[in-house]
Structure formats: structure tokens, C-alpha cells
């Protein structure tokens, strides 16, 4: 009951936050300059430029411009991407699929590995395994992701030649239909083992690059949370009941250590979205991040707007999910205070 009310309240607030974000970003883009830069060329006459300006309502005040933009966005028209030479809405989904495939795989591996490593180190507190894990975790959080990716490329691509760059082998990609845009899924649907291997092969290096930092963050949090839980009296009380160490750890300490860790896992969603930009540049991954990077350098406002809005909506939803899991794990949590 309590939880449902909270979800409803958050869902009501969400559009307002998205509205706020869009106002902030819209204002910033318009301060930065005219959105029609991508359409302009030197051959255009003054009359043609003015015609364009009118089409984009640039002669109107800012809030009217915002109104026109918002109306378009609600109808699914996010403007024209100069970088992709196509409407934003048209190129968005295939690029999202590429980014999704990359980040979901790294997130899944990072969460599992991070939780496992955190427990591994926390249980062996102050033994050498713990120290090694901690050093790796601390360095992982300070590692510049783009540099880590390049070092991996230098070793495994340039020198050893074990892994390729890009998302796929062009011939294999062309040999099958892509109904979902997720390469791994498409290759399974097409029954192509070669395609699946190709997809995984291309995914490994960028996924490691993207996931390493997240593993570090989750490991650190899980370890310190577990160490703290293991010192709680209820852990001793569980031992005093005669429970074997397996149950003391799994049912009591580990479960409760997950509570603070879940918050951090929610934050890693943001971390992954941010990291995807650099990782996609380095590995020439045709996703949202790489698109955003080119848009940023070339001042493609429609793309920037859409991307920022999309990330914030995703981030807000992720936080909502985190809150719900949080409440499920810890009955003491009263949400919304």
C-alpha cells in the first residue's frame, strides 16, 4: 500500500522533472546559438536564411520557441540531426539498440561480479585476498575509462590482434535480418552461430572497458556494507541459534548488505551511460554515445537535446526502480520522507 502510493507519487513528479530538465537544456542550447546552423550553407541567400529562421520560429520569443519544440517532441518529432543527416527519431532506435546491447551486458556482468567480489573480500577481511580486491577496486574507480579502453586496444588489438574493433563483421552483419537491432539476439533469431560468436567477440573489449569501473564501485560498496553487517549483533544472534556459517552469511549478513549497495547499483546506471560515450568512440561502436560525441563537437542541437532528455528519463526511472528494490529489501524503509 505504502509502496504503491510512493510509486504513484513519483510517477506524477517525474514529468515535472523531465519538463524542468527540458527547460534547462533548451534554454542553454538557445543561449549557445542558432539551431539552424546544421542547415546553413554558404550558398544560401539572405532570404533563404530568413525563411529557415521563420520555419524554426526564431523570430519569436524564447518561450514560444520552447512551446513549438515541446509540441514537436510530444508528437515524436525531435528535430533533424545534422550529424546523422536524418531526423533524430529515425536514427535513434538502431543506435539505442547498439548502446543497450553494450551496456546491458556490461551492467549484468558488473553487478554479478561486483557483488561476488565484494562478498569475497568482505568475508576475508584484512586477509591478502581482501587487500588485493580493495586495491583493484580503488584503482578501478580512478581509472580514466577512455584511457583504459585505449590500453586494451593497444594490447589486444594492435599488438596481439585477438579482438576486433567495431560492432560486427560487415559480411556477417549483412547476411541476416535485424528485427531487434540487438546483434546477439538477431543472430540467435536468424539461427546463425557464426553471427552470435561475432557479436560476442566484438562485445568483449568494450564491455570490459565499460564494466570495469562499475565493478570497482559495486565491489567497494558491497565489501564495506558486508563488513559492517558482519559486526552487527544479529549476526552473532544468528550464530547463537546454531545456524551454519553458510546461512549466517547468505540469509542474514549478505542480504542486509545489499540494501546500501542497491543505491550504488542505481548510480552505476548513470556511470554506464556516461562511460558509453568514451567507450563507443574508442571501439567505433555505432551507438548513442558516439552519436552524441559527434553531435557535441559539431553543435548538433537537436541530437544533444534528445540525448540529454532521454538519459535523464532513463536515470529517473532507474532511480525509481532502485527505490522500489530498496523498500522490498528493507521493511524499515519509509519511502518519500
Amino acid at each position: 500500500m505504502q509502496l504503491r502510493d510512493y510509486i504513484i507519487r513519483r510517477l506524477i513528479i517525474l514529468p515535472f522533472l523531465v519538463f524542468g530538465v527540458s527547460v534547462v537544456v533548451f534554454t542553454l542550447t538557445r543561449i549557445g546559438g542558432s539551431p539552424i546552423g546544421v542547415y546553413l550553407s554558404h550558398e544560401m541567400s539572405a532570404a533563404e536564411v530568413q525563411q529557415l529562421e521563420e520555419r524554426f520560429h526564431l523570430n519569436e520569443p524564447l518561450y514560444v520557441q520552447y512551446f513549438y519544440w515541446a509540441r514537436g517532441a510530444l508528437q515524436g518529432d525531435f528535430g533533424y540531426s545534422g550529424v546523422a543527416s536524418a531526423p533524430v527519431s529515425q536514427v535513434f532506435w538502431p543506435k539505442l539498440a547498439a548502446t543497450l546491447e553494450l551496456s546491458v551486458v556490461s551492467a549484468a556482468v558488473a553487478v554479478m561480479l561486483g557483488l561476488w567480489l565484494g562478498v569475497f573480500a568482505g568475508v576475508r577481511r584484512n586477509r591478502w585476498q581482501d587487500h588485493v580486491t580493495r586495491v583493484v577496486a580503488v584503482s578501478g574507480a580512478s581509472l580514466p575509462l577512455f584511457w583504459f579502453g585505449i590500453v586494451l586496444l593497444i594490447i589486444f588489438w594492435a599488438n596481439l590482434g585477438w579482438f576486433p574493433v567495431g560492432r560486427s563483421d560487415a559480411d556477417i552483419w549483412a547476411s541476416m535480418p535485424h528485427p531487434t537491432g540487438l546483434y546477439m539476439l538477431d543472430s540467435i533469431l536468424a539461427g546463425s552461430w557464426r553471427g552470435f560468436v561475432d557479436a560476442v567477440w566484438h562485445l568483449i573489449l568494450p564491455a570490459i572497458t565499460l564494466g570495469f569501473g562499475a565493478v570497482a564501485i559495486i565491489t567497494r560498496m558491497m565489501r564495506s556494507a558486508l563488513v559492517e553487517e558482519l559486526q552487527q549483533e544479529y549476526v552473532d544472534a544468528a550464530r547463537a541459534k546454531g545456524l551454519p556459517e553458510r546461512l549466517v552469511l547468505n540469509r542474514h549478513a549478505r542480504r542486509n548488505a545489499l540494501v546500501p549497495t542497491v543505491t550504488v547499483i542505481g548510480l552505476t546506471i548513470a556511470f554506464l551511460m556516461q562511460g558509453a560515450i568514451a567507450a563507443e568512440i574508442i571501439f567505433r561502436w555505432p551507438g548513442l554515445g558516439r552519436w552524441m560525441a559527434s553531435a557535441v563537437v559539431r553543435g548538433d542541437q537537436a541530437t544533444i537535446m534528445t540525448y540529454v532528455l532521454f538519459t535523464s528519463v532513463l536515470f529517473l526511472f532507474a532511480n525509481l526502480v532502485v527505490d522500489i528494490i530498496y523498500a522490498k529489501l528493507d521493511p524499515r524503509v519509509r519511502l518519500g520522507d
Binding site: Q232, E233, Y234, D236, A237, A238, R239, A240, K241, G242, L243, P244, R251, H252, R255, N256, V259, L329, D330, P331, R332
Partner: peptide, 24 residues
């Protein structure tokens, strides 16, 4: 020792607020 704990010798802790697991 595990067979003794809880069955032969049991313990009542000082602060039941801390000795009971809050999430179960």
C-alpha cells in the same frame, strides 16, 4: 558447537533491537 548453540546453550542478548535481524 553448532549443535550446542541454540539447542543446549542459548543466549539472550542485551539489546533485542540489535539482536533481531531487521529485514526478516
Amino acid at each position: 558447537m553448532r549443535q550446542i548453540r541454540g539447542e543446549k546453550i542459548a543466549m539472550i542478548f542485551q539489546d533485542p533491537g540489535k539482536a533481531l535481524n531487521p529485514t526478516l
